[in-house]
Amino acid sequence: MKALLIRDLRLATRAGGGFGLALAFFLIVCTLVPFGVGPEGGQLSRIAPGILWVGALLSCLLSLDRIFALDFEDGSLDLLATAPLPLEGTVAIKAFAHWLVTGLPLALSAPVFGLLLHLPGPAYPWLVASLMLGTPALSMLGAFGAAVTVGLRRGGLLMSLLVLPLYVPTLIFGAEAVRRGAAGADPVTPLVFLAAITLATLALAPFAAAAALRVNLR
């Protein structure tokens, strides 16, 4: 298990692995939004929680197809499916690796992007907390979407269509927590819901994803 995690991290961080692309994309989103809505600080600070969450979600989506597609193409997935590690475990590890190279950096760097968008001061801890709690679910659901579309030509676009509706509850509770934090209200309720969704997703999605992978391998 550790070997798989280390390999995926090594592949992601080596040249051509695409590490940091998600962060760059996040930066671009946060740069483009003020061009679209105008530079007025009050307005930006009002929409900042939503923009930050939608931006994080889209950045996460960007690299999902890499979770399985490369392993499928070079035959590694066939070999992993016949390895002693259960396929559910493989899925969970690969989703965890994806989170470590996209979700975690996004959550940790989000305050910087919050500055760009005039996010109100009290919201910062809640922004990091909600992203830390919510992005694992994004990676895991993304792994499910990637597993469903892994063998398909032009699977990337279809995967977005399948995965984005699944992201709705996570987005709602995540952004709501930041919004409440920004307004000085108590953000604990949405955070608890967010954590519940993430835990349930982590518990169940590996089975659905492994089932989809088995179908795509045969």
Binding site: F144, V148, P165, A208, A212, N216
Partner: peptide, 10 residues
């Protein structure tokens, strides 16, 4: 199979 699994998760 795939749409069936998607329908469950969906």
């Amino acid at each position: 199979d795939l749409t069936g699994v998607l329908c469950l998760v969906g």
